[in-house]
């Protein structure tokens, strides 16, 4: 039985960008165990701690705005959840905010429907990124943007234009910036890789640092 739901905002920065979302979930579960927090468990043969995450962050991307819900079997103060977890989590993964939320609120993956990203391109390593401000005009004007998506060896063509909610680019000294907001969630969506692909860039391009800067919901629910 869960008595309390605590939402936490956490960072995944530095070297932790090189661990997958699945690896991160293990880091979190083990931290909860080591902090000896009264986490609730699922029923069944192999009880699992009840921890529910927001949309997964792709390997290689950093973030300071990730969200997770912990379900506890006994009352515990959100501030205590934060301080006890921060004592055992790696420094690159810090709980920066924690608050109780209604137990019956929809899941984070249902709530969150948009995500914003900021790409920093080191012009010494990616000189082509100088052209980003010129390129975005062309992309924003297009009514349709079709990308190829591979799944189980099959290639599908997918329309992503409606999911691209904002796009901005500028150059500041030795760095070019690209900022965009995407629709995320179950019904059709796109991801940062596909957007970068429009500029012939990839998450693996040396000299790029991609950060998720916001997770938001259009619904009336307050995330915090």
């Amino acid at each position: 039985m869960e008595a309390l739901r605590v939402r936490a905002q956490y960072t995944k920065v530095g070297d932790l960008r090189f661990i997958s979302h699945l690896d991160l979930t293990r880091v979190m579960e083990r931290a909860v165990k080591r902090a000896q927090l009264p986490i609730a468990y699922s029923e069944g043969f192999h009880p699992m701690p009840k921890i529910a995450y927001g949309p997964a962050l792709a390997l290689g991307i950093i973030s300071r705005v990730e969200l997770v819900d912990f379900f506890f079997a006994a009352p515990v103060l959100p501030t205590e959840v934060q301080s006890r977890l921060n004592r055992v989590l790696p420094v690159e993964c810090r709980i920066v905010r924690a608050a109780a939320v209604p137990i019956d609120q929809p899941a984070l993956t249902t709530l969150i429907d948009r995500a914003s990203y900021l790409v920093r391109a080191d012009l010494q390593l990616v000189p082509a990124a100088k052209a980003l401000p010129a390129q975005i005009g062309d992309i924003l004007e297009r009514e349709s943007i079709v990308v190829e998506r591979e799944k189980k060896g099959r290639t599908r063509r997918v329309e992503i234009r409606p999911h691209l909610l904002g796009l901005r680019a500028w150059v500041d000294g030795p760095v070019a910036y690209l900022e965009f907001t995407l629709r995320v969630g179950s019904e059709g969506a796109t991801n940062p890789r596909e957007v970068l692909g429009l500029f012939n860039l990839d998450l693996t391009t040396p000299g790029l640092l991609v950060e998720r800067t916001e997770l938001a919901t259009e619904s009336e629910v307050e995330l915090f």
Binding site: D15, F18, I19, S20, G60, P206, G207
Partner: peptide, 20 residues
């Protein structure tokens, strides 16, 4: 490693060395 190699290889977490 951080800037050039780890972003491009499979399972970069193999080479971090800062595990708990």
């Amino acid at each position: 490693l951080r800037d050039e190699i780890l972003p491009t290889v499979s399972k970069p977490a193999r080479y971090l060395g800062n595990e708990l």
